[in-house]
Write a protein that binds this DNA or RNA. Structure first.
Lengths: 235, 235
DNA sequence: CAAGGAAAAAATATCGATATTTTTTAAAAC
DNA sequence: GTTTTAAAAAATATCGATATTTTTTCCTTG
């Protein structure tokens, strides 16, 4: 028996990568990635049969993963008419940004009030890791892009993880994924005109200096710039 | 064949009540009701096999309904260890209330700014329906309670439905269900010491008078009172 | 030639069976 | 008397087959 298992394992290279304990999680992550990256276009139909063949996953498992994505508002399910990728719109992007600013500043303010030494260390470390990948970014571009997204996400999470409100963090997370999706649609124009690295540095400095007002102002500007960059590109 | 179908249909009286187009939705509604009412206790394990027998629904369907409830944070799913009812705590109740106040006032302010005649009419109508069921409440109590919950929910929704932010309304809805659950756990003490009807009336009057500041202050007090009533009862 | 409607095709929703994993139970060893 | 290990039981996760519903196709009818 172990032979055939080994053979199968070889042909399907670790489906369950990135610590996906369950197949549903694997499907969820993969689908989410495809939606955020735009490989699955906004508003397009998600046909179970089709995805089933493509991802080599049973229909029930797929449906469950899709349902998980409905919770993230990346997928919508219409009655008896299956699933489709959530639509995007300029209006929605503005709404997302507005809410994000609210959640992010709330979380940052409280983190600055409550954060301890370990929290500070986490921020510095995440900033360092982000900086490292940014160095490589100029040369290799495409391949590093995904890794940059991850580390950017980690950095911002490190900033606010000392916030005690489960709900703020929960909503913030959902909104972050939403904005990530919009960001991908305007990836080209994002860099160049803007020194994201310097912005991050300023935010970190203000945060470590425990200057809540300044840190919040900077992070709001950070998000506003992202919005401006995208405005006009989406519908 | 039609005979057996008819027989089955008779024994299962309309499972799909309250406009549940799909079985998943039916299971979802039923589970949610049982969780909010406390029939399914906080933190208790939700065994698929058990529920399957009890609700007469296939396992995949049940899992999907459960996943839907994870999105509402009424159920938590732990890796390869199934589902369980989300725990409750005083800390969480405070967090929920804080966020609710934020979402509710944001939504109310914008509704007051944007609401039209139809919005006003909807509020008056919902208030009327709520008042009617409150009259009956004093006598029959238990049976009317559920209907009161529905109409209370409708009234509060009517107040803020003119808000244009999809996300505020989305988060507000999730939080409302959370608080509904906490409220059920302290149902007895709720009425009596408090004139909820008068509070609703005052909120409605301020809203229709387009006095955003007053309406928001009143609705925050409304929610704070609910919190005070519950504090000390949960864990 | 447009509108409507029946038949066919495609897709979704649902189910129960099987494979995996976790938990419990019991026995053995230290 | 604990702790370990092994076996059994229970529960979850996954799958593909079937039943329902929706969509498309194509023929009829006005």
């Amino acid at each position: 028996m172990s032979d055939s298992v080994a053979a199968v394992a070889a042909s399907k290279p670790e489906r369950g990568g990135r610590g996906a304990k369950t197949l549903i999680e694997y499907a969820y992550q993969r689908l989410r990635k495809d939606i955020i990256s735009g490989a699955l276009a906004p508003d397009s139909k998600l046909r179970i049969e089709h995805l089933r063949a493509q991802y080599e996953i049973g229909s029930s498992t797929l449906r469950e993963a899709l349902t998980l994505l409905v919770a993230d508002a990346l997928v919508v399910s219409e009655g008896q008419r299956g699933f489709r990728v959530a639509p995007i719109s300029l209006e929605d992007l503005k709404d997302v940004t507005r809410m994000r600013k609210m959640m992010e500043t709330l979380a940052l303010r409280e983190s600055i009030e409550r954060g301890d030494d370990q929290w500070e260390a986490g921020i510095v470390a995440a900033f360092h890791r982000l900086s490292r990948v940014e160095e490589r970014l100029e040369a290799e571009a495409e391949q590093v892009a995904e890794s940059w997204e991850d580390r950017n996400s980690d950095f911002h999470k490190a900033l606010i993880c000392a916030c005690s409100s489960r709900w703020i963090l929960h909503f913030r997370e959902i909104l972050y994924h939403q904005s990530e999706r919009y960001r991908r649609f305007s990836l080209v124009s994002q860099r160049g005109e803007r020194d994201v690295h310097a912005e991050h540095k300023a935010i970190m400095d203000a945060t470590l200096a425990r200057d809540g007002d300044l840190a919040c102002r900077l992070i709001e500007e950070h998000m506003d710039k992202t919005l401006s960059n995208m405005t006009g590109m989406v519908s």
